[in-house]
Design a protein around this nucleic acid. Structure first.
Lengths: 109, 109
DNA sequence: GCAACCGTTTGATGCTCGTCAAACAATTGA
DNA sequence: TCAATTGTTTGACGAGCATCAAACGGTTGC
C-alpha cells in the first residue's frame, strides 16, 4: 500500500498561456479536454476516451503534454493513474478562459 | 486605381477552434494578436509590430497562419496590406473566447 | 519608363511534433 | 513466485513548422 501521489505539474502561477494554447491546438488533446470537462477522474485507457485508433503510448504522450502545460493533474494510485482537469487553477490564472473554451468546443453545459 | 480587396479567409461559420488555438499557440503570433487587440489596422512591417528581430518573410508567414485560421482579416490597398482582428466574427463564433484570451494575455482593457 | 517600396513566395535548413512499436517499471492477483 | 495489468519511456520515422535568404510581383512616385 502506498500513499497517493501526483505526477509533476507546474504551479498555478507558472501556467503559461501560449503553452496552454499550444497544448490545446491539437485535435486529440482537445478531445481529451472534452472528456475531462465532466470534472471527474479518468483512466488512461484509450478505449475509455474514445481514442481506440491511437496507441496507448501516443495517448500517454498527449496526456503528458496536457499535464506539463498545467491543464490536467494526474493522481497515482497503485498501477492506475487518474487524470482530471485543473479547473480551479485555470480559472484562477485565466478567468473565464476555460469556460469559453469548453463552450466553444461544444462541451455540455 | 483599384478597389480595395481582402485576402482569402475562412467564412465565420468555418472558423475551427483547434485551428485557432494552434495559431495562437506560438509566441510570435500571440504578440501579433496583442498588437491587433486595439482594433486598428496594422501594416506588415516587422518594426511596427515589435518584431525587429524577425525577417519580413517570417512575419508574413505568421500573418498568413492567423488569417487562414480566421483570426485576422487583411485589406489590400495598393502596395500596402492592412491587417486587423476579426473581433465580431470571433465573438459570434466563440462567444467570450477572444475577451478571455486577451485578458489572459494581458491586453489593455 | 524606371527605380524604390511593400509584401509574398519559394527553397533550404534545422527543429519540433505525432505516431507506432518494443522494452521497461511498478503493481496486483493468483 | 509468477503472470497479467497499467501506463511510461525510448527509439525510430515521416510530417510539419519557424526561420532566413533570395527571387519575384504589383504599386507608386519621379
Amino acid at each position: 500500500m502506498t500513499a497517493d501521489e501526483r505526477l509533476a505539474q507546474p504551479a498555478t502561477a507558472d501556467i503559461d498561456l501560449v503553452t496552454v494554447l499550444h497544448a490545446l491546438g491539437d485535435p486529440v488533446r482537445m478531445r481529451l479536454l472534452l472528456s475531462y470537462a465532466d470534472g471527474a477522474e479518468h483512466s488512461c485507457d484509450p478505449r475509455d476516451l474514445g481514442l481506440d485508433h491511437l496507441h496507448k503510448s501516443t495517448v500517454s504522450h498527449h496526456m503528458r503534454v496536457l499535464r506539463e502545460a498545467g491543464v490536467t493533474t494526474t493522481r497515482v494510485a497503485g498501477r492506475n493513474r487518474f487524470v482530471s482537469l485543473r479547473r480551479a487553477d485555470l480559472d484562477a490564472r485565466f478567468p473565464g478562459l476555460l469556460d469559453a473554451l469548453l463552450a466553444a468546443a461544444g462541451a455540455p453545459a
